[in-house]
Simulated scan of single mutants.
Amino acid sequence: MDGEFQLGDDLRGRRIVVAMSGGVDSSVVAALAKASGAETIGVTLQLYDHGAAVKRAGACCAGQDIRDARAVADRLGIAHYVFDYESRFRDGVIADFADEYARGRTPIPCVRCNQGVKFTDLFGIARELGADCLATGHYVQRVVGAGGQAELHRAIDPARDQSYFLFATTQDQLDYLRFPLGGMPKAQVRAIAADNGLAVAMKPDSQDICFVPDGDYAGIVKRLRPETAEPGDIVDLDGRVLGRHRGIAHFTVGQRKGLEIGGSPYPLYVVRVEPEARRVVAGPRAALAVAAARVEDMNWIGGDHAGPLMAKVRSMAKPVPAWLDGDRVRFATPEYGVSPGQATVFYAGERVLGGGWIAETEAALQVA
Rank of each mutant, 00 (worst) to 15 (best):
Asp2Tyr: 11
Gly8Asp: 01
Asp10Arg: 10
Arg12Gly: 00
Arg14Ile: 02
Met20Arg: 06
Ser21Ala: 11
Gly23Met: 07
Ala30Cys: 06
Leu32Tyr: 04
Lys34Gln: 10
Ala35Pro: 03
Ala35Glu: 07
Arg56Cys: 12
Arg56Pro: 04
Ala57Asn: 11
Cys60Ala: 12
Cys61His: 13
Gly63Asn: 06
Arg70Leu: 08
Val72Ala: 00
Gly77Ala: 03
Ala79Asp: 14
Ala79Phe: 10
Phe83Leu: 15
Glu86Leu: 15
Ser87Lys: 15
Phe89Leu: 05
Gly92Pro: 05
Glu100Thr: 06
Glu100Lys: 14
Arg105Ile: 05
Arg105Ala: 07
Pro107Leu: 05
Cys113Thr: 06
Gln115Cys: 11
Gly116Asn: 15
Val117Ala: 12
Phe123Ile: 14
Leu129Val: 04
Cys133Phe: 03
Cys133Tyr: 04
Gly137Met: 02
Gly137Asp: 08
Tyr139Val: 10
Val143His: 01
Gly148Val: 04
His153Ala: 03
Arg154Ile: 09
Arg154Glu: 08
Asp157Ala: 15
Thr169Asn: 13
Thr170Phe: 00
Gln171Met: 12
Gln171Arg: 15
Leu174Glu: 03
Pro180Glu: 01
Met184Glu: 07
Pro185Ser: 08
Ala191Gln: 15
Ala199Met: 10
Val200Ser: 05
Met202Ser: 15
Phe211Arg: 02
Gly219Tyr: 00
Val221Pro: 01
Arg223Val: 07
Pro226Asp: 11
Glu227Ala: 15
Gly232His: 05
Ile234Cys: 04
Asp238Tyr: 10
Gly239Arg: 05
Val253Gln: 09
Gly254Asn: 07
Leu259Pro: 02
Leu259Trp: 00
Gly262Pro: 06
Pro265Thr: 03
Val273Ala: 00
Glu274His: 11
Ala277His: 14
Arg278Ile: 07
Val281Arg: 02
Gly283Gln: 01
Arg285Pro: 03
Ala286Cys: 07
Met298Tyr: 09
Asn299His: 14
Asn299Met: 12
Asp304Ala: 10
His305Met: 09
Leu309Gln: 01
Leu309Pro: 02
Lys312Gln: 15
Ala317Pro: 02
Lys318Gln: 14
Lys318Gly: 03
Val320Ser: 11
Pro321Trp: 00
Gly326Glu: 10
Tyr347Lys: 09
Tyr347Trp: 08
Tyr347Arg: 12
Glu350Trp: 05
Arg351Asn: 01
Arg351Val: 05
Ile358Leu: 09
Ala359Cys: 12
Val367Glu: 02
